[in-house]
Amino acid sequence: MKVLRAGDTALLVETGDVATAHRLNAALRAAAIPGVVDVVPGEQTVLVVTDPATGPAVDLDRLAARLPGLALPADAEDDTAPVEIPVVYDGEDLDEVAELTGLSRDEVVHRHASASYTVAYLGFSPGFGYLTGLDPALHVARRESPRTAVPAGSVAIAGPYAAVYPSRSPGGWRLLGRSDLPLWDVTRDPPSLLRAGTRVRFVPEESP
C-alpha cells in the first residue's frame, strides 16, 4: 500500500487492486476518522479527503503513517444477495455490438445477462457504477461520437465495464437495453442503489 499526497488536504492510497480498495474503503468508513469528509474508492485507489475549513484539522503526515496499519476486513464484498436489474434488451447499439463482437444479437444478450458483476467504483454521474465482470467477448470500445443525451435506465457497456445510466446524461457507451429500476433517487437514503462492492445481476425481461 502506497500513500500519495493529493494537495494539502487529501491522501491518495494505492491499493494495487479493486478488492483491497474496497476493504480499505470499508475500514475507513467504519473508523469514521474525525476531519475526514470523503472516502472515495477508485479502481485501485482510495482517496481520503479532509476539510480543515469545516472540520477539525487533520495531520496528514500522521494519517498517512496510520493508514497502512489499519486493520482491513477480510472481505468487503457485499455478502447480501446481488441486486437484480431487470432489462428489456432492445438497445439501439445491440446490432452494432453483435457486429463488433462477431456474436449474434441473442448471444450478446445471453452473455451480458449470464455474468455476475461487482461495482468497482462510482463516478461520471451520481449513482453511476462501473461494473466489473463483463464477459471479455463483449469488451468493445465506446462510440466514436458520444450521444448528447442517453435516457435514464439505459443499460450499456464500454471497454471492460457494464453500467446503467442512473439519470439522463450525455454518454458514449454502447446501449444494449433499458431498465425501469430506479438506481438514483435523492429522496431515498442512501440515494444510490449501488455502491462500491455491490454485486449485480441483469435479468432479461420481455418487452411489454
Binding site: 474503503n25 470523503d38 449513482g127
Partner: peptide, 24 residues
Amino acid sequence: DLGRPGHAHLGVPRSGAADERSSR
C-alpha cells in the same frame, strides 16, 4: 452554500460556492 461533502463515493460532486472564502 458549502455543497455536498460526504457523497463523493456515490459520484456526487461537492459543488458549493466556487469561491468559498467570499461566500463565507
